[in-house]
Design a protein around this nucleic acid. Sequence first.
DNA 1: TCTATATATCGAGAAACTCCGATATTGGAT
DNA 2: ATCCAATATCGGAGTTTCTCGATATATAGA
Lengths: 98, 98
Amino acid sequence: MDKTEILKALAHPVRVEFLEWMKEPERHFCDQAHPLEMGICAGQFEKRCGLSQSTVSAHLSTLEKARLVKIDRVGQWAFYHRDEKTIAAFLDDLRSTL
Amino acid sequence: MDKTEILKALAHPVRVEFLEWMKEPERHFCDQAHPLEMGICAGQFEKRCGLSQSTVSAHLSTLEKARLVKIDRVGQWAFYHRDEKTIAAFLDDLRSTL
DNA sequence: TCTATATATCGAGAAACTCCGATATTGGAT
DNA sequence: ATCCAATATCGGAGTTTCTCGATATATAGA
């Protein structure tokens, strides 16, 4: 759990927004073809943030490198979901050290 | 309380370190001439982080713009201390939204 | 096999960040 | 008034981040 890497990952509002959206999938991704239990397709973020496909992919990759999200690759799709373990550990660490 | 600005301010390990040092002044700044209750002199950080005076000043300025610290200017000195109100509000907000 | 779709990666330009030395500003002391 | 010490600001070099379009990869389906 690299605190600095996580804080850098959170230092862009779009990435924070992605994490917040994933907290309530049924609210923000109700039109996804696949069941929400599988995670959120990368393309879903694209539609909602107004950025290009490659930019969204890069942001998701940043979140993944910081271990804030996990990816399940199924066929041609990448399903993203929050890594609650890392997020909780980070929040606890931040509260106790900051 | 601008969450994005705070997260960007925390996205540099030196600034996080400054905040952590200020949490225990008697431990990290025991050699300060002025009483620690006044806050921590800018020069104290310089001695401990190995960065130049101008760089330290800029980092402290970033923390101040994010309202993570407050400054008391007394004579030619600038005494810094944590703004616990902002820090607590930020941690609460992060825990509830992230 | 060929085509379409989903995602990742590459290359490049713009913007932001980091750091420094030099200079400016401020206030105290002589 | 002058000098010194503490801090802030400026200007610039180097690095990183953000974003895009183009291209690559990988899978599904006809």
